[in-house]
Design a protein around this nucleic acid. Structure first.
Lengths: 346, 346
DNA sequence: GTGAAAGCGCTAACAC
DNA sequence: GTGTTAGCGCTTTCAC
């Protein structure tokens, strides 16, 4: 493996000249630049990443920190990861995937102090997330996918849950639905301060109230069984429901199964809208699900871009951005079979 | 950020002594070790990863190379990634996720020559995969998830497709099915030399022939529509089919939808078995799919373990291992409604 | 059992 | 516009 010295010797210049043609941090005459480039090509020279990192104090490695919990990544989270990986690659960075659970604060501190990561993207952020503090204390540049409760000082990209819920509800209301039930994540998830669950809950309440309708929310476990149970609970609480809006991607298939099991047809008897969903998953259902398509890989990409801009750029600009999910109408929504006049219960 | 020198000064020993208590590559008296440890704790010392990497010529970073094609990762591939990430973390390595397409051979060469990666796990291996050659030439230790055509000299872990298909067929035949159609990936995928598609095709033929049955295979595009089309083709080629075995996880939901659309019930009219599937996906269907559950994260884990063993261990032992998928019987298989006596064609 | 010192392969002052 | 050289923070001979 050729080193910079070899290149310098062959090109008959000094090492620093070689270094400067590589980094471009000072003007080099075209003649010597060509000599150097030729020598590099001839020797198939590739700079040693570790040496470069040590000397420059920049590893050109970014971290993607994801809590590795139970059931692995869903399609949406996977899209974050692949989007981030692709963007990092484009920006000339490497991306390391670090599974750091919420409990491993010491691991995180260690990771942050190793000076291996130039910056970090944090996934699955909680409203109160100690990892943010640890990272900030260690002085590691940080971009969140998601938001903490207080975001005044942080860079983040997140889904615009307000807007997403508003659009979903508007779609259903526009079709004539009045009795809409929102199936959220589990009560435990809500209690743990999981931002998406809390924000969508509030947004749903606001949206329904805004339409003069009563918001009914059910918390469902992340499973098909959870979905079935949720539907039963939904009918108990709102017997005349004509539409279900579901945040819980896993539960939604249970809901569909249970609907069929009860002899109800989608969308004729009940319309179903899936929130924050990937097209691939939406297409799995029969009928294919009308869904709010999550900006999955875009979120990962934007987070990385904000981070690299921060690292390569001059100032410490904050980047705060919300992206809505986009409504994609498929086969699971339609007008309710029987319209009830406004305000006419039962 | 404290350095080794700081620790040495505080502990009143030489830097080399500090280094040796860290690496354990030479005996240190209990007394001095304690002094050093105390100093490290007091200064919250963390070794600098770049400096260590440069001096030791080992970065303790592994690469996970995945071709970033169109539709992103499926649940099975995602499990490889998360399994690998977790295992790397346990082994004290970092894992960088490198999207290197089949076309980016030069990118790969560059990556391999940077000396940033101690070793590499290659995903989505083709039967003839040039990336393997590039990596071998660059002298980067390598483990495959999947197999090339000639594996004599390589380390790999892969799914045991033979056994998986054999078990799936045995399950259906055991239930009394005689007319079984295999829905594979698309013709294009087969033509491209995608190992799993080719191996399962051959295994299906062998398994069916072994039971004295006629193998019928349909190639399906990776989409719900592809699944619908495949089912139509299947009925055209084998009108009395009673069971479908499907490799194509995406198509299978289209198949289920089309079955329902034709007024056929699963499993009463047609049994369905999904191959190389994650439980999460199998549970989405109604009825939940009887499936050959892929050893997803185990494959990622074993690949990383083999790689680290190779790197940390002495010899250059090859690791070659096949893991079968395990049959999980759920609701989509049952005895065929009407048994046909052996050989009695409609 | 411990220390001194020579690198590892670069970057970035500081010279001219 | 180019060269010299002092680090970057470790590991690892070599010496005792």
């Amino acid at each position: 493996m050729a080193t910079m010295h070899d290149v310098a010797r062959l090109a008959q210049v000094s090492v620093s000249t070689v270094s400067y043609v590589l980094t471009g941090t000072r003007p080099i005459s075209q003649a010597t630049r060509n000599k150097v480039l030729a020598a590099m090509a001839q020797l198939e020279y590739q700079p040693n990443a570790m040496a470069r990192g040590l000397a420059s104090r920049r590893s050109r490695i970014l971290g993607l920190l994801m809590p590795m919990d139970e059931r692995g990544l869903g399609a949406t989270e996977t899209a974050f990861v692949t989007g981030a990986a692709a963007a990092a690659s484009v920006a000339g960075y490497h991306l390391v995937l670090s599974p750091v659970g919420g409990g491993d604060l010491d691991d995180l501190r260690r990771l942050a102090s190793q000076r291996m990561l130039d910056g970090v993207v944090l996934m699955e952020v909680q409203l109160a997330d100690e990892r943010v503090t640890v990272l900030q204390e260690a002085g590691v540049p940080l971009v969140l996918i998601g938001r903490t409760g207080d975001t005044s000082t942080l860079s983040y990209v997140d889904i615009d849950f307000d807007q997403t819920v508003r659009e979903a509800v508007a779609h259903l209301v526009g079709l004539g639905h009045r009795r809409i039930v929102y199936v959220n994540h589990s009560a435990a998830t809500l209690a743990s301060g999981y931002g998406p669950a809390l924000r969508t809950r509030d947004a749903f309440t606001a949206a329904m109230t805004g339409h003069g309708l009563e918001p009914v929310m059910i918390a469902a476990e992340d499973s098909a069984a959870g979905g079935r149970a949720a539907l039963a609970a939904a009918f108990a609480q709102a017997p005349e429901l004509t539409a279900v809006l579901a945040m819980n991607e896993t539960a939604i298939f249970g809901i569909l199964g249970e609907l069929t099991g009860r002899g109800l047809s989608v969308p004729d008897d009940v319309s179903v809208v899936s929130m924050v969903t990937s097209p691939q998953v939406a297409e799995l259902a029969t009928p294919a699900l009308t869904a709010m398509t999550s900006p999955g890989s875009a979120l990962g990409r934007i987070a990385i871009e904000a981070l690299t801009r921060h690292l390569d750029g001059p100032a410490d600009l904050r980047h705060q951005q919300l992206l809505p999910c986009t409504l994609e109408i498929r086969g699971s929504t339609a007008q309710p079979r029987s319209r009830h006049p406004l305000g006419a219960d039962q």
